[in-house]
Design a protein around this nucleic acid. Structure first.
Lengths: 230, 230
DNA sequence: TTGCAAACCGACCGTCGGTCTGTTTATGCT
DNA sequence: AGCATAAACAGACCGACGGTCGGTTTGCAA
């Protein structure tokens, strides 16, 4: 049989693409190595030539996804002449924009990620993402702390607190996604909007800012992401 | 061979005891059903008579552990004539006391739980615990919201925020535990103390209280839990 | 005593992650 | 061009694991 030879990098990326799809569809545990082999059109030997273990694929996928977040934030970091507050706000806006621009994909990913059997996948991705974003947030907050605009004892700890808040809205997100298209959709969207607004307020309070300073979401963001069809 | 017959409840509890030990020692994935069978002195058929799947054991263990937290908080809820602030503070104190009183066990559990291969176990226990504690915290906060002592728009969301903060100190906890007995122990303990103090301040701010209102940890708590041997 | 349900046994099964021995392709060197 | 070497790949194979199933033993109540 004719083998299709790819460079190590190309093959790795290709396997990672397939893995990401499968993981988000079936979950990590439910995706077998054979699924990955079949999807990527590679044999077992080929697969294990590029990855030492199935676990490593998960790690690589997580790293790749975390790279998206860090890239977005780093672009904001490179803009000169911004205050810490502006930098933080624009970082959050960049992340928000990315979600809005890739709404369908993001939505499917969240829907998959929040299914109970995908706990492993979710927490792995989340952990790697936090590890990647933490130093960037810490740097922004440190600047705000030094110029007196943020009232926090330690920038790194403050960043940890803010990132930890990410899990406070999962219930609301899950409910909004699962109720999409049902009669509860409107109420669920409203609840999610309220939860996200509150998360923004909590970030304000953590940083010692007046309520409403940070714009964590803009009005209509949820309804734009999860439109009610009718 | 002589079979030892136990009632369903007794056998279940016994298997759960063994499972808890094994899970905390080897991790969930690394613990095989055979390990559980051997430890509990029961056959495969016997085991699967009481649990439909290995997963169910994990769920049951998580529920049992969550019951400890809820019990402690419920006792505080039953004390009449307390303000919401006092109730919240005493709940935190009860949880703290329990940890201090079972220091060696708690420490071993945390050390096991924070090992990377035990991610599944950790997050499962954490999730169930949060689900169990959330309504109780929400009730306390609702009372404080209604009497004007807490400045939060929604008690349930506020409780979610506060519980989500639990994960912000894991790094510090892990470092303190792993550096126990080494030269870094003193520094790691200090860092953990600072992180926990900060978590307390964040809770204050979430609730709209002045910094230092809530006593999340008392001075010396960390050093009492993780004594430096020298 | 006997009938029955619940507790329990252990051989068996399919599948999965991972290994190992070899084969095919690209690449650099002479 | 010819050739050696290493990287990319193939696929048979393995041990272990979670789970099933038909059968056996025990407690208990009628």
């Amino acid at each position: 049989m004719a083998r299709s030879y790819l460079s190590a990098d190309e093959r790795r990326e290709q396997i990672l693409d397939c893995a990401q799809n499968l993981f988000f569809t079936k979950g990590f545990e439910a995706t077998t190595v054979q699924d990955l082999m079949l999807a990527a059109g590679v044999s077992k030997g080929g697969f294990y030539h590029h990855f030492a273990a199935k676990e490593d694929v998960l790690e690589a996928v997580s790293q790749r996804l975390a790279g998206v977040s860090t890239q977005l934030i780093k672009e904001v970091m490179d803009v000169p002449g911004l205050t810490a507050f502006e930098r933080l706000n624009q970082s959050l806006r960049a992340l928000r924009r990315f979600k809005a621009e890739h709404a369908e994909g993001i939505l499917a990913a969240f829907a998959a990620l929040l299914r109970p059997e995908n706990m492993t996948l979710y927490h792995r991705i989340n952990r790697v993402n936090i590890e990647a974003v933490l130093p960037l947030f810490a740097e922004i907050i440190a600047a705000g702390r030094d110029d007196g605009s943020f009232d926090v004892p330690d920038a790194h700890l403050a960043a940890q607190a803010i990132l930890a808040l990410g899990s406070m809205t999962h219930d609301a997100v899950a409910r909004a996604i699962t109720s999409k298209g049902t009669g509860d959709a409107r109420a669920a969207n409203a609840a999610l909007s309220a939860a996200l607004d509150w998360q923004g307020v909590v970030i304000d309070r953590v940083l010692g800012l007046p309520d409403g300073s940070i714009q964590f979401v803009e009005p209509g963001f949820v309804d734009a992401l999860l439109p009610a069809e009718d």
